[in-house]
Amino acid sequence: MGGEKLGWKDLEIGAVVTEPGSASAYKTGDWRSERPVRENEKCIKCGICYIYCPEACIHEDEEGYFESDLYYCKGCGICAHECPRDVIKMVEEVEE
């Protein structure tokens, strides 16, 4: 991830970030303790999970189903909570 090696002299005035879109360098997936797991047979492709995800990390695939980018999914469970068909279960992450 960007920034971890920066020393204080490397920072711009006021810690301004000059590279647009650099927030994507920060992988919020590191925060996750539970991951969303889908049973797509029940999915009606309504896109509610996609709309509600606060990380905007849910993408539509070629068949119209939705999936979470686990580099950014922080495991909040909002998608699972909002899904009208109970497609998504939050499953605890286990250390390998």
């Binding site: 971890e4 920066l6 204080w8 920072l11 810690a15 301004v16 970030v17 920060y26």
Partner: peptide, 17 residues
Amino acid sequence: SMGCYGPPFIYSETKKA
């Protein structure tokens, strides 16, 4: 971007500066 989020790996450096 101004006033960004400063996780523990960078907050102290911003304060030093």
